[in-house]
Nucleic acid binder design. Structure first.
Lengths: 210, 210, 210, 210
DNA sequence: GATGAATGAGCCTTCATTCAT
DNA sequence: GATGAATGAAGGCTCATTCAT
């Protein structure tokens, strides 16, 4: 399961990045199957033989990138303030962290976005595994240390958190389809986001909170 | 724009179904581009020449399936009781109709799910057209005649309906990922579903509803 | 070598003609290989099975047409006045006969023209055989009973006749490339033709002829 | 318009020739449309992928060959003595040059012959361009600097030159059909050729020439 | 270690021919 | 005898992977 790529990692940093970015970009733009190794080597300015000596196949390259983006996600969580106990503020903090990371490595985000839509049989099982992983560990971490006493007492809190979560994710996806690139994102999105938060706070929290 | 396929429709029912199901399955699993007509004819047990005499190209076959699933969706709406004005009962009715149809043609559902992720240039415009169609007519019909007075007055109703909708869809997707086949689905899922409804009803409706 | 097609010949005259004309046209327009039996049956309004029961293959159909046009050519020679002994008048008579026949069955001429350019391996040998046949029997008949005393005595008459013949054929081919269809042919071509005749008469005949 | 094929030209000479000859042969025998790249690679003993990496498509391969044969033709004219002003000696010089080139690359000649009959839409315009080119530059060069005073004054010189030209070409074609390979060609053909020249000289030149 | 030419299985599509009705 | 649905070999072309240099 754990494969390391000694040949690749012994390359100079800059070359590694060139290859990773070229590959992320190509897979993000075209999906697994339609992505062309030719385009990747052209963009990364390396030879065909090199690519296949670092990784052994297109599939392994893809799997490597999957691992790579997991680390990027981890960085997001590192930037979040885990002391904040209000769930909506926490979610917001995570969202902002994501946004900052995106600014730093947009390729990884686009790739991740594409991964979510990937359905090539050859990599499907790995993709699903990753997704389950992310979701679970995300939830675990994401909702650690949350102050659950703020919630109304007549509702199932875990399910309510699910509703909040699904709402955020679905809203994000809806926005993603609206904008062409993350560059377009402005503050008005965050404003609309807050409006959803307000509804949920008003409905799911006890009367006199905050 | 409206092409009919007389050769295909004059086949015996059973063969038509074999072909449709084989094609739906292959496209659902692999997306437009990577789907192989070879696999389709193998699964449907027909010859290459036949497939291309019924439909004229891979693209037309795909477009035909697009039309086909629209009809499946329409059947869903035909089974729904549109006189019911309570939004949760309405959603439940739609959900049950979907479920019944799914039992009858599961391939169509998987295909539709794949269509949503399709980005092959060759069929993109048609896919988009369909999606716009479904979304619009879906929303139009889905939320027609709903009694909005039941909602609390201190929240934006349209946004609240979005939350309800996203919750239902996300819940359904989550369930879909859990079970391997729809065969496994039992009543306990509907029970859990109702629990989400209860939370939302309790939170989004006025105090004294029913 | 001699194959007859009893099934075909027992059809009613009108149907035979429909098939022949459709086939001549399709082969003339597209050459042997690119010609489509589908187009032929569509134009002739018969079924696929019928075509292949009359003739057994595309190749036999083509060979049949080859035979058919030979008969058309024979008709040309039947219309020529073989009593005329002057070679140039004879050639002109043949040319005019060709022209008249063309008016009656242009398809056959276009087919013949296409045959001359045919190079499909599958029918090449038969085409060559036919061409040799036509050329030889054409020359035999064409130059029967010619008054050779008109020619100068210091030149080889057979070779001179070859020169005349080649000149006529090459001139005709040149004209054929210029005009798009036989419809365009006017009298000015015959005038230019006569000018070549004049040169040759002046040069190859004895001084004081006629 | 001018495409070069660096991948192809960087192959070793012998391989280039194998490919060129295989392609010339296949196109000559079958015409553009019916020629099979499969046959070409089989004959040239290269792989499918290779052929399409050198040239990008069947069409480009064909166009490349068109260019190639133009160069062969140019070589012919380079070997001709353009100071000779007698038309028959000039024609003979051209004929001999052609013959020598033919010995070196017979495939090119057969290809050129097939090109003249080509009517595939995909390459028609290029073929026509080439033909116009050849015809014009051929006539221009071929009959440059000819001493026209040798001709009789009572005939149209241009038409007479046409007759001479057609005779030569037709004679050559007749010979080509008689022999199976150019290996068979001996001096007796040139002897017969001279006899035609003698007739024409005697008839078309003024009485007291040379 | 790096290169990129070579490979060949696989893609979609066409069409002459067969054969059950 | 007539039909046309079914067949499958062959077409041009792509691309991940290999391997001699």
């Amino acid at each position: 399961m754990v494969i390391i790529y000694p040949k690749f990692f012994s390359l100079e940093q800059e070359k590694q990045e060139r290859i990773i970015n070229a590959a992320l970009k190509e897979f993000a733009q075209n999906g697994y199957e339609r992505a062309s190794t030719n385009e990747i080597i052209k963009e990364a300015e390396i030879s065909k033989g090199s690519l296949f000596s670092y990784f052994n196949s297109k599939k392994e390259l893809y799997l490597f990138l999957l691992d790579y983006v997991v680390k990027v996600i981890d960085k997001i969580y590192d930037e979040v303030d885990w002391k904040e106990t209000d769930i909506f503020k926490r979610i917001k903090a995570i969202g902002l962290a994501k946004f900052k990371i995106y600014k730093r490595s947009p390729q990884a985000f686009n790739f991740l976005k594409a991964v979510a839509r990937e359905d090539a049989v050859e990599v499907k099982s790995e993709v699903n595994k990753l997704e389950k992983n992310i979701t679970e560990s995300g939830l675990e971490r994401g909702y650690q240390n949350i102050d659950l006493t703020k919630f109304r007492e007549d509702i199932d809190i875990q399910k309510t958190i699910n509703i909040i979560n699904w709402t955020i994710l679905s809203f994000a996806e809806q926005q993603r389809d609206k904008v062409n690139s993350m560059e377009d994102i402005g503050m008005e999105i965050f404003k609309e986001w807050d409006e959803y938060f307000d509804i949920m706070k008003r409905c799911f929290y006890k009367k006199e909170e905050e």
